[in-house]
Simulated scan of single mutants.
Amino acid sequence: MPDDTQFQDFDHARLRHHGDVDARPGMVDFAVNVQGSAPPEWLRERLAARLGQLGRYPGEDDERAARAAVAARHGRALEDVLLLAGVAEGFAMLPRLGSRLAAVIHPSFTEPELALRQAGVPVARVMLAPPYTLDGAAVPENADLVVVGNPTNPTSVLHPADGIRALRRPGRIVVVDEAFADAVPGEAESLAGESCPDVLVFRSLTKTWALAGLRCGYVLGAPEVLARLNHGRPHWPLGTLQLEAIAAVSEPAAVAEAQRKAETIAADRAAMIPRLRAIGIEVREPARGPFLLIRVPDAELLRKKLADKGIAVRRGDTFPGLDPGFLRVAVRPAAEVDRLVAAIRDVGL
């Protein structure tokens, strides 16, 4: 049901908390969902080849080439693509749509709500109960903006595309956060390839390609809606290396590589779940993302004990709708899961 406290004060610090705060350099990182510590060699080489051109401003040709690569990747028109310096930048643009009432479906990534609230947009929280099945009937009919994650961070739930389409209403824009869609084999349930006048699909490139420090992403939507998002943006919003990275990872060979990574993640997740349950941890399913939502008797104590052993996990209580017993853990290969399991056994739940 919608949260009737939407017009009251909100906790800025909790909404702004993200997993990078929990992961110090050198820790075994289950807190951040980036795959790997650095981009693959071929991508590093491609970016390095542009370093000699950083003395000039990024040109229209670079921007157009990156947009064209994204458009071709999703079978969309060039005008349907707006490039972003990370998806968080795109969420910061949402207030420009002039919403009178925004509904944010929770538990979910908190930046969209924070951006809307900071701009004075009234926000209704739509809280989903376990197993976090999407319920369009719970969204206020007068909401003219609806934000939903797919797959959703932190629940790892993948909503059916038909359920998201059913959120559409005359005069309403549906925002779909697909930051982790490329980590799902076949990009199942994605709306990125559909040209709908009232649907915006946000995509991140920082997770799969270990580009968190470069800030790369894009939004797909109707040109007139993208123009509203883009209004008032400064000139040269993305640099040369960002544009090169977006173009590079949108090419067919890179998309195929991402899908191989998605299949590996799915296999690692399937192996990780029973191992966590075997040591007494409650794992929430269904799970289709590159992370798992878990519940333990004392999450904060366990998080601190694991940090003392050099292992970072993400606290879950900063996500609206989750109590202090929740943690989020990234899906990792067996060797890293070995260390996590051993540490939990050592410190106890």
Rank of each mutant, 00 (worst) to 15 (best):
G59S: 15
A137M: 04
T5G: 06
V139L: 14
H17A: 12
V87C: 07
G19V: 12
A247R: 07
M127G: 09
P320M: 08
D3T: 13
A85M: 15
H18C: 05
L134Y: 00
P95M: 04
P58V: 00
V225C: 11
W236Q: 04
A278C: 06
S250L: 11
A299V: 08
A245N: 03
I265M: 11
G217L: 14
T152D: 10
D9I: 03
V249N: 00
H12G: 02
V331K: 06
P130F: 00
L322M: 07
V219Y: 08
P286V: 09
P2E: 05
A299T: 01
R117L: 15
A124P: 08
R332S: 05
L15Q: 10
N230Y: 14
I311T: 05
E111W: 14
P151W: 12
A85V: 09
E60L: 12
A210V: 06
A72S: 15
G217S: 09
E63Y: 14
A88C: 09
P223K: 03
T110L: 13
L200G: 01
G36E: 14
L158K: 00
A343V: 11
L211D: 02
V199P: 14
H18P: 03
P112A: 03
T152S: 14
H235E: 14
F30R: 06
H17M: 01
F30P: 04
R46V: 08
D144H: 09
A343Q: 02
A68C: 06
P197Q: 11
A312H: 09
L302I: 09
A72P: 05
A102D: 06
K309N: 00
D308K: 15
A253G: 02
R332V: 07
V81E: 03
S195G: 05
T208E: 09
G52R: 05
A102V: 10
I281R: 05
E189F: 10
I279E: 08
Q8S: 14
P39M: 04
G86F: 00
A271Y: 15
Y218Q: 01
G86E: 11
E41K: 11
V104C: 12
P58D: 07
L276D: 01
K305F: 05
A253R: 10
M1N: 11
A138K: 15
A245I: 08
D308C: 13
H74M: 09
N153Y: 14
R284G: 07
N33W: 11
